[in-house]
């Protein structure tokens, strides 16, 4: 790991901590739903609703975690595989 990478990690962590320092009492709702609300307030009624919705926010976070972990497994497998291949030589 190069110095460049260490600096980048620090910057990235800072990026996502700073919001809580600047506005500790904000709601941190989704930008998607903020826009949805803005449009609904104009009196718009969506003409189609999702064919299936996660029954609760627990199930929703389960599925989000599933999505992220599917991706993370593939990335981890790829990186480990390539590093192992190189190390064998």
């Amino acid at each position: 790991m190069k110095t460049k990478h260490i600096i980048l990690i620090v910057v990235m962590v800072a990026l996502f901590i700073v919001p809580f320092i600047i506005s500790p009492s904000a709601e941190y709702g989704g930008a998607d739903s903020a826009v949805e609300e803005l449009i609904s307030n104009q009196g718009y009624e969506p003409w189609f609703s999702p064919i299936w919705e996660p029954p609760s926010s627990e199930i929703e976070s389960l599925l989000f975690a599933l999505q992220a972990s599917i991706g993370a497994i593939i990335i981890g497998y790829f990186v480990g595989f390539e590093k192992g291949k190189r190390a064998k030589k």
Binding site: V18, P19, I22, S23, A26, G30, A31
Partner: peptide, 8 residues
């Protein structure tokens, strides 16, 4: 989380 106090 973002500096605007919302998430995306």
């Amino acid at each position: 989380p973002s500096v605007t106090g919302s998430c995306s």
